[in-house]
Amino acid sequence: MALLEIIDVHAYYGHIHALKGVSLTVDEGEIVTLIGANGAGKSTTLKTISGLLRPRHGAIRLAGEDLVACRPHDIVKKGVSQVPEGRQVFTRLTVQENLEVGAFTRSDPRAIAEDLEQVYTLFPRLKERRNQVAGTLSGGEQQMLAIGRALMARPRVLLLDEPSMGLAPVLVDAIFEVIERLHREGTTILLVEQNALKALQVADRGYVLQTGQVVLADTAEHLRLNEDVRRAYLGIT
């Protein structure tokens, strides 16, 4: 059984039918990527998983447990944590305070302290700036902080929403290195990305979304070689 299952999910913004029956699965230890154009429903899919948008129809399950009826904070507690789009860190809190908020659903101070050290090992820059207000970090550092904050919840599934958005190429590479490293360490990741080429390089499998529907699902390698995908999303003719 897949760790995260999304079955025929329909979601609306007011009257706009944003997701028209999306189904996908993520297995334990996998990186699965959602690619697609603007407005295809990638971020909306993540929002329905994390409970910020309630689907009108369909099922979302984590290890067989229903998530649709849960409130957002309970979903975090069950093990789904999100790196929101546009690296929304808490700008007026310090780096360390941001990370502590990430561990909000947990109560064991020893384990939290251990994970804090781990995040600092993963991102030494953050350790240097632990007492600095997050709003003063550079874009790349803020993205690292957002990822670190999500990891502090010790998630079973990590949802990454456009981690490379608005970053310089060097920093994009750094972020993807981190994603690969998390993958090697066994973290399960659902990755939404505009940068389809990068995403398909690190992912195991991928889904192509178009106007709220899954139009293609395959291994990342096959998608990379697929003619339509190459033309539409990789900019290669």
């Binding site: 994390s50 910020l52 409130r71 957002p72 904070h73 975090v76 507690k77 944590s81 999100q82 929101p84 929304q88 808490f90 700008t91 007026r92 809190l93 305070e97 502590e100 908020v101 990430g102 909000f104 659903t105 904050r149 919840a153």
Partner: peptide, 24 residues
Amino acid sequence: SRLGRAWMAMREDEDVAQAMGINL
């Protein structure tokens, strides 16, 4: 306290705070 952190996170961004597991 934890509660204080939650307040400040909420002040900064309600949606993100919620996505961090804070019961708004």
